[in-house]
Amino acid sequence: MHTTSRRNFLVLSGLAALAAGCGTASGNGGPRNTNVLRYQGSSGQVTPPELAASLGHLEDLKLEWVGDTISGPQDIRSAASGQTDFGGAFNGAVVKLAARQASVKAVISYYGSDKDAYSGFYVAEKSDIRAARDLIGKKVGMNTLGAHHEAMLDIYLKKHGLTRTEAAKVDRIVIPPVNTEQALRRSQIDVAVLGGILRDKALETGGVRKLFSDFDLRGSFSAGTYLLTDRFIEQNPQTVRTFVTGVAKALEWSRSTPREEVVARMTEIVAKRKRNESPAALKYWRSYGVAGTGGRIDPKELSVWADWLTERGDIRQGQVKVSALYTNEFNGFRAGQGS
């Protein structure tokens, strides 16, 4: 989709959603207002909802792709404004959106960090950077500011004794992920944040060394959630239950199924949707990194970022009530249940 036509489509589909009012029956029983969920995807990747749809876990609920998202914050803004029906982002971005009085609620975790899925902070093999204090005056390249990677950098610096004044002297540079490794090798930056296929390809090439990773800092944790508007949840409770439970089942299927089988399924999904994209990156897939069983949300996964944003001065103390930001009510998956 071209940018202009995609933007027009989002606006028109948002208006159409407001005008819709007929209901359908759910396979689980009970009325709901829609059996179609509009969303944004990611080129060459398979999201948990797309996997859930392929596995049949969404029952008669259909996903309607309206384009690819450019970032998590953009994705949840689209959901909050009604241009899409759900969006996902780093939990800190979810907290910031709620702080702006957006009536939204997180319903399930969809990505995180574990021993297989993590973002690392890498330096050149021969770099003199060995510790946190060595980063003062250095450039760190990451995909965006005020989100997951900058939060991890701040946590790392604070953990190793740097004051806020010292930490502010570490230069944070926004670089498109596909250009980050190249910028490091050309000495345009001193540290590169790399994850997934970009991390694995850099390690295959050699000449880079890990300084630390988010998994090193915090162990396994869920880092991002899907959210919907309060209005949508109120009007479509059974749709939300079907969606959340289906995604939960897909997450657990990906966790319990041999990796080769998961990658084969994802490759098939990409081929069938015909979006003029390459499935090459899928061979590097290892895990969604979600910590909680079935993607259930732990309040600490939101409060840690509320605290970080408060410390940064991005939100006021007590401005956001974490307990009001999320719900596990619609997650029907339970431990031991077949996925």
Rank of each mutant, 00 (worst) to 15 (best):
G224H: 00
S278F: 04
S254Y: 08
L10I: 03
I173R: 14
L63H: 07
L55W: 06
A147W: 00
S213D: 02
L194C: 00
N276M: 09
G207Y: 09
G82S: 08
S13L: 10
V244Y: 04
N143L: 07
E64F: 07
V170Y: 03
N236D: 04
P258F: 13
K249M: 06
T242E: 06
R218S: 11
R255W: 05
R312H: 08
A202G: 02
G67Y: 10
T3Y: 12
G146V: 11
R312K: 15
L211D: 01
G207T: 08
S220V: 12
T165L: 07
D134L: 05
S42L: 14
E150C: 01
G41C: 06
R209F: 11
S287Q: 10
D307P: 05
K210Y: 01
V95C: 11
V191R: 02
L58F: 01
F333E: 02
V244Q: 05
Q45R: 14
S103A: 15
A271V: 04
P299M: 09
T144N: 01
A168K: 11
F333L: 13
N91R: 00
E301T: 09
S127T: 09
L55T: 05
E277I: 12
V11F: 10
D298K: 08
A250F: 06
A52H: 00
L145V: 12
P31V: 11
G219F: 08
K169W: 06
R286W: 06
A106P: 01
W65G: 01
T257F: 11
S323M: 10
K126L: 06
A131L: 09
Q337D: 15
P176G: 09
T242A: 00
R218N: 11
K139Q: 15
N179W: 07
R199H: 10
R241Q: 13
